[in-house]
Simulated scan of single mutants.
Amino acid sequence: MVCGRTLFLLSLAVVMSQGIAAPASVTVSNHSRATACAEEDNVSLHLWAPGITRLRVEALPPPYLDRVDRDITTPDFSGCTFDGSAHPTDPAYRFREGRVVLHDGPRWRIVGLTLPTFWRPQRVPVRLGQRTVRGIHLLQVFAKTGDASSPREVLVLYPADGYWRIKPVPAPRFGDGVYGSSFLLGPVVDDGRPVVNIASIRIETRPLVLRLRFADGGQARVAVAEASRERTALDVSFAPPWHRATPFATLRSMHVAPDNADVSEIRWRQDANAALQVQPLETVQRIEATDVRFGRSIPSRHNTSAPDLRFHDFEAAGR
């Protein structure tokens, strides 16, 4: 039997045979809608590009963070039609609740949670070493850093719908910190909301790498390149190169107003030599970028310390 690593290396060889990867730009299209609910993901920003093979995703502290003493993390359902116990449009599949520690080493702790209910029935196999677990809804990665009294969660992945969230190691005054925007990596399709269907996940810990096999073919290698106060960074590789009619990534977030949002503006460069452009989220419809950051410039009363998300270092296979 051919193992997942061998398949990825074979696919990578195909990429190399098609030409050396080169810096690339991507198209970002805005499919967001207005809402009064601060607990609803009404922001959808799709990233498209032919032939994409690599990119980096970073979670960065918002630029105003040094001026903030108190984090605001309390949910606000005042403008919502639901109370937070469940979204009214979601189905509720039932599972046997559980928690499993997949890895607890000198650098990382990796935990899998099975929730009592989840909105999708998929039971994606997650393998680490010789152990395979099915039915994990929330995969948590905790970083063990020298300046923290206990491991700090810096990454979560929902295997059943493909959602990722990352954040830098929080400053002590912010406790465990909070997530803000989430994102998808892989063939994004609509199932009531954007999702990525993952067939299986294999985890390596030296270095920390998550290898994803997608349900309709293709693979991604996601390496945790850094987890620090400055950033948490993921280096992503696709094999084979991205030649699909779907986005290769989607950012999902919330926006009610500039001071009540997880993302309220977009910063980007059209190419390496171009000037930085900054526009409010709602004014952007479609842009071309080699470097794009989704974030905030003024403190938000929603998840105040939540990070900006930056997508850059795009590469595409040569032709």
Rank of each mutant, 00 (worst) to 15 (best):
D41V: 04
T290C: 15
Q219N: 11
R310K: 12
R301K: 09
T232R: 03
Y179D: 03
S44F: 05
R56P: 00
E39P: 01
G177R: 00
S29R: 15
P125F: 05
A59N: 09
E97K: 14
R33T: 09
A245F: 10
Q219T: 11
N30R: 06
A148F: 03
D313G: 07
A249F: 00
R67D: 13
V156Q: 12
Q140M: 07
F248S: 03
G129P: 13
P194V: 04
G180H: 01
D104C: 04
I72D: 04
R193N: 05
Q270P: 00
S300F: 01
H302C: 06
P207I: 00
H137E: 06
W164H: 12
F214A: 01
V169H: 06
G19L: 12
Q285G: 12
I203D: 05
A239V: 13
H312T: 11
S253I: 09
L47D: 04
L155C: 09
R94K: 11
A239P: 00
A249W: 02
L113W: 04
G192Q: 11
R193M: 09
I166V: 15
T145E: 14
W48M: 08
H302E: 02
A36Q: 14
L210F: 13
H312Q: 12
I166Y: 06
S264V: 01
R152Q: 14
S253Q: 10
C37F: 12
D176R: 13
S78A: 12
Q18P: 00
D90A: 14
L102A: 07
Q122T: 07
A274F: 07
P63S: 05
D176Y: 08
R221K: 10
E204D: 15
R267P: 02
R33A: 08
V126I: 11
L210A: 12
V26C: 11
P247I: 06
T205S: 13
S25C: 04
D161N: 15
F238W: 11
L276T: 13
S297E: 10
G186K: 05
V195P: 01
Q277I: 10
G218H: 09
Q140P: 02
L234A: 08
R269C: 11
I266A: 05
D308S: 14
S11Q: 13
Y93E: 04
P280N: 10
S253G: 09
S149W: 01
A59P: 06
F294V: 01
N260R: 13
H46P: 00
F214W: 07
K144A: 04
N30D: 08
N30M: 08
T74I: 10
V195E: 06
P241V: 07
G4T: 11
S264R: 03
W242N: 04
P151G: 02
N260S: 08
G98L: 01
Q285M: 13
R96Y: 03
D41Y: 09
I198G: 05
A225Q: 13
T250D: 10
R173G: 09
S85T: 15
L113D: 14
A274S: 15
R70V: 15
I110S: 01
G51Q: 06
V14E: 10
A257F: 03
E288L: 12
A245E: 15
S29V: 14
Q277K: 09
E204M: 10
A215T: 07
P50I: 00
L47Y: 02
T53S: 15
E226A: 14
H302K: 13
L185G: 03
F8E: 11
R213G: 05
I136S: 02
E39I: 03
L251R: 06
T53H: 09
